[in-house]
């Protein structure tokens, strides 16, 4: 059974999340603050962590950073409107995805499944020479990209961008992290480059509507091979 650790300081939300996740076949552990969350994560080794950013003791961003020092467990952060700015920080610190409160269980479950599947695929990532995300096949060694068996022409930069997103498939990659990894350490604020390259990639991948390369406005990009359930707000 998949073990999920939920860290939130609101007992009512914890209770509702526990019931909902258990009904969907997850094994649920809860923690009421950051310190308890960190210690439970190290003892029980969950398969996934749902982490609220507004914790009473340790900032959610800091919890994320400390988790990433020893584990690659997928982390989905719960952000409220007053923690929007820290949502990007949390993603930069290694969180995989985010859900904005209030959210429906359906949406949360979809995000959990995506994060779990990509985490499973990502594990032996260091050794792989090719990646497949939905219809897209990226051969890292030969630097060849095929969409549904048909090879497509990409510039070197476009290929690097796609390869980085594919290596982190399912994860929300922030503007800053993409610019650093693909353009180089001197970059970080040139989000307009990304807009241009993302639209070129979408065109070449036949993905103009964007179900594959998802834009998170103000946050970053995410390569997903299935469309997460739309929010029912």
């Amino acid at each position: 059974m998949t073990k999920v650790l939920v860290v939130d300081d609101d007992p009512a939300l914890l209770r509702a999340l526990r019931i909902g996740l258990e009904a969907r076949g997850f094994e649920v552990m809860v923690a009421h603050n950051g310190a308890e969350g960190l210690s439970r994560a190290s003892q029980a080794i969950p398969d996934l962590i749902v982490l609220d950013l507004g914790l009473p003791d340790v900032d959610g961003v800091e919890v994320c950073r400390r988790l990433r020092q020893w584990t690659e467990v997928p982390v989905i952060v719960l952000s409220a409107l007053d923690s929007e700015d820290r949502k990007v920080l949390a993603l930069d610190s290694g969180a995989d995805d985010y859900v904005t409160k209030p959210f429906g269980m359906h949406e949360l479950e979809a995000r959990l499944r995506v994060a779990l599947r990509h985490a499973a695929a990502r594990n032996p990532a260091a050794a792989v020479s090719s990646l497949t995300v939905g219809p897209v096949h990226v051969d890292l060694a030969a630097r060849v990209v095929e969409v549904g068996q048909a090879p497509i022409e990409l510039t070197a930069r476009e290929f690097d961008l796609l390869a980085y997103l594919a290596r982190n498939a399912g994860k929300v990659c922030t503007h800053r992290s993409i610019l650093r990894e693909v353009w180089g350490p001197g970059y970080g604020n040139e989000t307009h480059y990304l807009r241009v390259y993302a639209s070129r990639l979408r065109r070449k991948l036949g993905d103009e509507a964007g179900p594959l390369l998802r834009t998170n406005p103000g946050v970053g990009y995410q390569l997903v091979d299935e469309r997460p359930a739309p929010s029912r707000s």
């Binding site: 609101d10 009512a12 939300l13 209770r15 509702a16 999340l17 019931i19 909902g20 009904a23 969907r24 507004g54 719960l78 409220a80 409107l81 007053d82 409160k101 209030p102 959210f103 429906g104 269980m105 359906h106 949360l108 029912r232």
Partner: peptide, 25 residues
Amino acid sequence: AHDLRTPLASIKVAVSDLREPGIVL
């Protein structure tokens, strides 16, 4: 806004659980 959204988050999660057709509670 924060204090209003906190109870809303729990309500939304609970309601979305209750009316999800495939979920047996």
